[in-house]
Design a protein around this nucleic acid. Structure first.
Length: 281
DNA sequence: CGTTTGTTCGGACTCCAGTA
DNA sequence: TACTGGAGTCCGAACAAACG
């Protein structure tokens, strides 16, 4: 590939650079430490990641913005196009690069989402961030992240990050928006003929028996008790919601191996969700 | 033996508390 | 309020070790 005059010898392997590009295309923004923890154990390899990132920056594929002390990395538009042309992963053509999010001071939210994605483990390829689910002309719900992994009757899971920046009632409204999305229908068939009504969400996730679980991660505070109180308040607000909602506190998740993560269900149980699905059918 | 990966160290930066 | 010095981090580069 013709590159804009590489100023010096590259100090990283093509393999790591490719991996970095791939990871950044999935999580959108990340710190060097976060990226390192995906492929090496905690603490090691950060310097190595930095080398790769520096090379990629010299090549024009990535850039960084500052969030206080930390460098927050993101793909450039050139980088995004390159990943898309690589063909290994599906890239949305007009996805934002993350540069603006960092500049706007939204880095902490994005980094928290990245934290969960990275710590969750599994394949980064299976994640997509900032996914737009349009309900109708005025309503839509944008998922912080979607995990493409079959789970509990659905082919994906939704991830929502809350950093104590919105009120509990607004958080509840977002979950109600998910509920609306789960129940929205559209009419299929010619005007005036006998068509059929179908669930909107099945257009996008046709291989799911049940509407996906919404996982809410509460962060923004180290105080776990405060987060628990928020969980309880949220549970109150969404009482009777026809949606499976699981909640967990970010500080707890960060200190626990991901296979032991404990999620607290505050919406429907799997059985209830199945019963609803049968009744609707 | 050249390349790749991990570690160490100095410098630069940011945050914060104390002071005028 | 503006300034300053200290403390703590993070970055980058040099160095060392492991690898094929």
């Amino acid at each position: 590939m013709e590159t804009p005059a590489a100023p010096r010898k590259l100090t990283s392997t093509a393999q790591t650079r490719g991996l970095l590009m791939l990871m950044l295309s999935r999580v959108r923004i990340a710190t060097a430490a976060q990226l390192a923890s995906v492929i090496t154990r905690e603490g090691t390899g950060v310097g190595y990641m930095r080398r790769g990132l520096r090379d990629l920056r010299a090549l024009g594929f990535v850039d960084y913005g500052r969030h206080s002390r930390e460098m927050v990395w993101h793909l450039t538009t050139l980088g995004q196009r390159t990943v898309a042309e690589g063909g290994d992963v599906a890239m949305r053509p007009h996805a934002a690069t993350g540069e603006r999010a960092i500049a706007a001071g939204l880095a902490p939210h994005g980094l928290a989402v990245t934290d969960v994605i990275v710590k969750w483990g599994g394949s980064l390829i299976d994640w997509e961030v900032e996914v737009d689910h349009t309900i109708d002309k005025v309503r839509r719900v944008v998922s912080d992240a979607v995990l493409y992994r079959p789970s509990r009757g659905a082919e994906v899971e939704f991830l929502e990050m809350d950093r104590f920046t919105m009120s509990v009632s607004r958080l509840a409204m977002k979950l109600r928006a998910y509920e609306a999305y789960s129940q929205a229908t559209y009419f299929e068939g010619e005007r005036g003929t006998i068509g059929s009504t179908k669930s909107l969400w099945r257009q996008r996730y046709p291989d799911s028996r049940l509407f996906p679980v919404v996982r809410v991660v509460l962060g923004g505070r180290e105080d776990v008790d405060a987060l628990d109180r928020r969980t309880a308040a949220l549970e109150q607000r969404i009482r009777g919601i026809r949606l499976r909602v699981d909640v967990a506190a970010l500080p707890r998740l960060m200190e626990t191996p991901s296979n032991k993560w404990a999620w607290q269900p505050i919406g429907l149980t799997d059985e209830q969700a199945q019963a609803h699905a049968r009744r609707a059918a």
